[in-house]
């Protein structure tokens, strides 16, 4: 399965997004995305099913919560890879 990783400026923002999206998105978790993705900072992110990304973006837009960067997490040749969107 593919996942979307949406990065935020802090854990508080990630917690708020998780709360706001809880009833609209089926899988939702807070993770710290890998530093190797090239985004500076502590990388607190929401990880959800890729198909839910647009819903997630809409919720963030509605509440003015800035997404620092978005990645698609997928498996290629048996390895986890991240594609920046």
């Amino acid at each position: 399965m593919d996942y979307a990783i949406a990065m935020y400026s802090s854990i508080t923002v990630a917690n708020r997004v998780k709360k706001l999206a809880a009833n609209q998105i089926s899988y939702l978790g807070i993770i710290q995305a890998p530093a190797s993705l090239g985004v500076k900072g502590c990388n607190y992110s929401i990880r959800c099913k890729f198909e839910d990304l647009e819903t997630l973006r809409a919720i963030c837009d509605k509440f003015g919560l800035k997404i620092k960067a978005v990645f698609k997490e997928t498996i290629q040749n048996g390895e986890k890879v991240y594609i920046r969107l």
Binding site: S10, I11, T12, V13, K40, C42, Y44
Partner: peptide, 16 residues
């Protein structure tokens, strides 16, 4: 603050 750790300045965003 566990956020914007790359910066030597205090973050602007609350509550951090």
């Amino acid at each position: 603050t566990g956020s914007q750790s790359e910066s030597l300045s205090q973050p602007i965003n609350m509550p951090d």
